[in-house]
Design a binder for these strands. Structure first.
Length: 524
RNA sequence: GGUGCUAUCGUCUAGUGGCCUAGGACAACGGCCUCUCACGCCGUAAACCCCGGUUCGAGUCCGGGUAGCACUACCA
């Protein structure tokens, strides 16, 4: 048998906008596969459509992968920046590593020329001069028109014109494309690592355009095969939308005589919209209120802004974990996986065949899990910008302490503000519903008595306060819930929050008493 | 229309002929905890697309339907 080949996989996005979350998952699976096999993860930019290029998209893609911890071994990647200021500006520097470059298809024009020629010379391809308008007219005229063995004889190409005439036209500067000549009536088998053998007949394939003189660039199909071959890619792991064109790719490998080193294919199931059917799109995110992109993206071309997971408060580990399980699952009940665990356990034959609906609610749960795993200290650092934004300055130790009291009730760092604001800023208004339910006729009198009870108190520890106040309530035969909730409303502004002695502990005696007095004047 | 892929709770999935009176997780619902709101814990409800076949036995294998999706560009 053949020698074990070094595993080399690639993620090959187009710089046509923000990197879709489905693309992120494709990148992740490629990465996991490469790492598990001790192979290489490459990143190549497929910018063969000059008209769809979006400025900033390339940087965006690389920055997204960097944020998520999907490392690139070869090709284009974000340069690790030691300069903090550059990170905070959100900018990245791109570097190219490896000796199979260039890694942008638009920079590989000369390389493609010789392979186009090879196909032309071997009779696997031909020149075609049909204009887009003519093709359009043809499609209108003939239902289900396809440029193939049945129709190529009636089109304007080097097969019907003759090679000399074709060359003359080209010399005259006429625009042309090069098409792949698909031989009819041949069953082509694609072995897919996830789905098994897929057989299709070459009759349904059309003579795909491989090269267009208009911009002197190949199309995806040609560039993809040439690059994967030259870059020694061992496994092509990509979305299911590519499955129908996989037979064409196999034919291309054969035409080049590269069938022995043809990569193995694995076509991943699609990410579907949460409701209804169909592929998950940016519109679904807008409609249902969740991000579909890893990072916020400002599209210079159409002026749109797309929200991102990072800006929504997600941890990259949570996004990775969530995405990994959308289409892959090991045996067993484990739900939380670190990147290392994923690398160790991932396998293509445990990837599902069917599409996965995107369950945003579960995504939030993952973030909750990861937030709970973080230390209060770490969270305090992450929360600092939010505090600053609200004009609060507080010592980190205090912030960490407050976070420790409240973090179990939030999914995201920014949500911490809603749970902790009263620790930093005295309430200015009091929640209507809490008031209606917990602030009764006797409450002002109770609070007045409580004030008198607490004023002389020296020992402000939770234990001391608890026995003092509980003793007083018992002696007066007041309702514990009634008194404590009224007290809580004075301190928090609503009937919520952690244990009351934890609150008084953070607030301290002066602030606690001040808030009770304020409440008495405002709602008393 | 053509071709291909797919099909287990609402959702992500476990299940590779008997261990399945189908397991886990999210969401939902109920309870416990409790000064409140949460968290947490415990529990409830919830699925094998349909029809045939193979077999002693089918969610699991086969065939046929049906449905969904993808592709069908000088886009990737």
């Amino acid at each position: 048998m053949s020698m074990e080949r070094r595993v080399r996989v690639r993620f090959a996005p187009s710089p046509t906008g923000a990197l879709h979350i489905g693309g992120v998952r494709t990148a992740l699976y490629n990465y996991l596969f490469a790492r598990q096999h001790g192979g290489d993860m490459l990143l190549r930019i497929e910018d063969t459509d000059s008209t769809r290029f979006v400025p900033g998209a390339e940087e965006y893609i690389l920055e997204s992968l960097q944020w998520l911890g999907i490392g690139i071994d070869e090709g284009l990647r974000a340069k690790e920046s030691k300069v903090e200021s550059q990170k905070s500006k959100g900018g990245i520097e791109i570097e190219a590593v490896g000796n199979h470059g260039p890694y942008r298809q638009s920079e590989r024009r000369e390389i493609y020329h010789q392979y186009v020629d090879q196909l032309l010379n071997s009779g696997h391809a031909y020149y075609a001069f049909d204009t887009p308008e003519e093709l359009e007219a043809k499609r209108k005229e003939i239902p289900n028109f396809q440029y193939d063995a049945r129709t190529r004889e009636s089109m304007t190409n080097s097969l019907t014109l003759g090679l000399d005439e074709a060359k003359r036209r080209i010399a005259n500067g006429e625009k042309y494309v090069v098409r792949f000549l698909v031989e009819p009536n041949e069953d082509v088998t694609v072995h897919d690592l996830i789905r098994g053998d897929v057989v299709i007949n070459s009759n349904i394939l059309d003579d795909k355009v491989l090269y267009k003189s208009a911009d002197d660039l190949p199309t995806y199909h040609l560039a993809n095969i040439v690059d994967d071959h030259l870059m020694e890619i061992s496994h092509v792991i990509r979305g299911e939308e590519w499955l129908p064109s996989a037979p064409l790719h196999v034919l291309l490998y054969r035409a080049f005589g590269w069938q022995d080193t043809m990569p193995q294919f694995a076509h991943l199931p699609l990410l579907l919209k949460p409701d209804g059917n169909g592929k998950l799109s940016k519109r679904d995110g807008d409609r249902l209120g969740f991000p579909v992109f890893p990072l916020e993206f400002h599209n210079e071309k159409d002026g749109t802004v797309s929200s991102g997971y990072r800006e929504s408060g997600y941890f990259p580990e949570a996004v990775i974990n969530f995405l990994a399980l959308l289409g892959w699952h090991n045996t067993g009940d484990q739900e939380i996986f670190s990147m290392d665990e994923l690398i160790a356990q991932f396998s293509l034959d445990r990837v599902s065949k069917s599409g996965a609906k995107f369950d945003y609610e579960k995504g939030k749960w993952f973030n909750h899990q990861y937030l709970q795993m973080k230390s209060d200290d770490e969270l305090a650092d992450l929360f600092a910008p939010v505090l600053k934004q609200h004009g609060v300055t507080a010592e980190k130790a205090l912030v960490a302490k407050v976070i420790g009291l409240t973090k179990d009730r939030v999914n995201f760092v920014p949500e911490l503000w809603e749970q902790t604001n009263y620790f930093f800023v005295a309430p200015t208004e009091y929640d209507e519903k809490s008031l209606a339910k917990r602030w009764k006729e006797d409450s002002p009198r109770h609070m007045q008595e409580l004030l008198e009870l607490l004023e002389p108190q020296q020992d402000w520890s939770a234990e001391a306060l608890d026995s003092l106040v509980m003793g007083w309530i018992a002696q007066k035969e007041y309702g514990v819930g009634l008194v404590m909730n009224a007290f809580r409303i004075c301190l928090v502004g609503a009937a919520r929050g952690p244990h009351i002695w934890a609150i008084t502990d953070v607030l301290g005696k002066d602030e606690t008493l001040r808030r009770v007095r304020t409440a008495l004047t405002k709602i008393g």
